[in-house]
Design a protein around this nucleic acid. Structure first.
Lengths: 336, 336
DNA sequence: TTGAAAGCGCTAACAT
DNA sequence: ATGTTAGCGCTTTCAA
């Protein structure tokens, strides 16, 4: 009884009004008498009327839903971003539709297609590790489909972007390690082409420079799938086994935990001689062993900001917005 | 926002056919000649025609989307469940719409109502910790709206349910601890009314019994918000501070990590004298300190099974009458 | 201020 | 096998 499926016609019939009048009353139109409006609203309330959003969408060409595309939902960072997105979407009455790429460019493309043709009003996305060609995204945007990128953003596309201050984060990590006395700092990072990889690497180099440490390419290891597969980290640990390093900066969530796991298994004696700093959004770094220093991204905020920008763009009438790139600070969390 | 999208009418006009013929061709109806079908499909392909799913939804009264309601997205267990749901939904061409309750019964109700009236075809949900009255869910189901519950399921409602073998998991934990030599095993758990709380408690008691250990109510601590707020665990640790126990079984993801954190901070010296086993779906338990034994739920599978049941129910013509409760085994992961 | 009617894009019952 | 038509529930001209 609380959930009958009444339509505007039902209300119109019951109140001896026309459907259009009822619609106007419900939509709070100006061209309606306060009296009728009251009557309609009261009755709608009484029968617990719910507008059919599909019909409205068809008419208005707007679905009040936004799509999210990330590589993995079951990931500290991304799930926190989604939390942030959901909080904004919820408050603005948008639905949130999710899909995953598993770092596959093909899957990404399929998801975008799907969410576009499935009439989401816009997209929030972080590029997959595999993605190199973004031209199809650009052409969608040219057609007026709003896309806001976060975290992993395309360099060439003009759009809103929300990212962490990755360079600063990388710098902070190296700076921290150096102040702890590290002289030879390794770097484990993700796919070469990703923005976050480049920016964090830049921060790493900047940190080395600031402390007069040499940049040694042999100490930089890339994982093209960002640690999605643990064997990537096992390989890294093996390759670093005979390298002489006393500190390491790791550039991503799964990379960081994967490295710790691989080290525990493969090279645990070295752990006593190195200091570790890594990007991670795990909420439980303080119970990790070995002890690490965490670089944390403001994932929840990032989701919120991205969602706000997207919804703003969706709801703005004029097509030509001037696009912003929002850069949010990272936090270095030292283990007590 | 200009969406240059073709419609069936456009195709019909271009090919000198009627819209219905075009529709039939696209829908691969039997009552159409192979020839015209080819022509239509070829042309549709050429202009990159995308059907408007909203229009189809309105007509068919089906949205090809399913709702998910969980307490928190940014949670090991739930994000893995969602991953599983998404994998099935993706393969069956359903969209996945997400919302969170933050353990609030009110928010849960709003979300349900929203997803229902927003025309999702069905719901997958785990009850919030606060939920006690499920009658509104029941009346929705009576109206033919399919809901499949997972993890935290209502006892009284007839529906498909997918759960872990919580009792066995609890038993396994206690059995393990006992075999390790524990004589006094405490238990930290979640909201009293939740199914998972009761089932795990039962397993705990069964384990005690099997090993001739006394049940001591003073060693059982409830957290009504399941560790959503860390102060719940701080309180537990404080209360257990002067209790004499040598083992502890913890009944949930956030409870487990929260307990470890609180112990590290408040009562770390005791850690050398107790063994810990806890439900958690963290993928990095092997780098936790203190060392714990994990009871892991098959979260991904659970999501898959639940999604399969829901979609099956959505697509079955006759009102389903025999509901299944799928019980999946937990895994005990001993730290090497 | 209200009502009648058209139409969003699609499907399907009914006609041909 | 194809076309005609009505209608899903809603919004929105246009007419009264």
């Amino acid at each position: 009884m609380a959930f009958e499926n009444y339509t505007i016609k039902d209300i119109a019939r019951a109140l001896n009004l026309s459907p259009s009048t009822v619609s106007r009353a419900l939509r709070d139109s100006y061209e309606i008498s306060t009296e009728t409006k009251q009557i309609v609203l009261a009755y709608a309330e009484k029968i617990n009327y719910r507008a059919n959003p599909i019909a409205r969408s068809l008419k208005e060409r707007k679905s009040y839903s936004i799509g999210i595309i990330v590589s993995e939902i079951a990931n500290n960072f991304f799930s926190q971003v989604i939390d942030g997105i959901e909080s904004v979407a919820y408050s603005k009455n948008y639905q949130v539709v999710i899909s995953q790429t598993h770092e596959s460019a093909e899957r990404e493309r399929l998801n975008v297609e799907h969410l576009y043709s499935r009439s989401t009003d816009g997209l929030l996305m972080a590029l997959s590790a595999e993605t190199s060609d973004c031209s199809y995204l650009e052409s969608l945007m040219d057609k007026g489909f709003p896309i806001v990128f976060f975290d992993r953003v395309p360099a060439q596309i003009r759009s809103h972007k929300v990212i962490a201050d990755n360079k600063q984060g990388g710098y902070d990590a190296v700076n921290y390690l150096s102040k702890k006395g590290c002289k030879k700092i390794a770097h484990v990072t993700g796919a070469k082409k990703l923005s976050i990889t480049k920016e964090r690497l830049e921060g790493y180099k900047m940190g080395l420079l600031a402390h007069n440490l040499d940049f040694n390419p042999a100490l930089v290891k890339y994982c093209e799938y960002g640690g999605l597969h643990q064997d990537e980290l096992e390989k890294v640990v093996m390759e670093l086994r005979d390298q002489d390093y006393d500190g390491i900066f790791i550039s991503g969530d799964k990379l960081t935990t994967g490295y710790l796991q691989a080290m525990n298994e493969q090279d645990s004696h070295k752990l006593d001689h190195i200091a570790i700093a890594g990007f991670t959004n795990s909420k439980v770094v303080n119970i990790f062993s070995p002890t690490i220093t965490a670089i944390r991204q403001p994932a929840f905020d990032m989701g919120q900001r991205a969602a706000e920008l997207l919804i703003q763009q969706i709801e703005s009438k004029q097509a030509d917005t001037d696009f912003q790139t929002v850069v949010l600070p990272t936090t270095l969390i030292e283990r007590k």
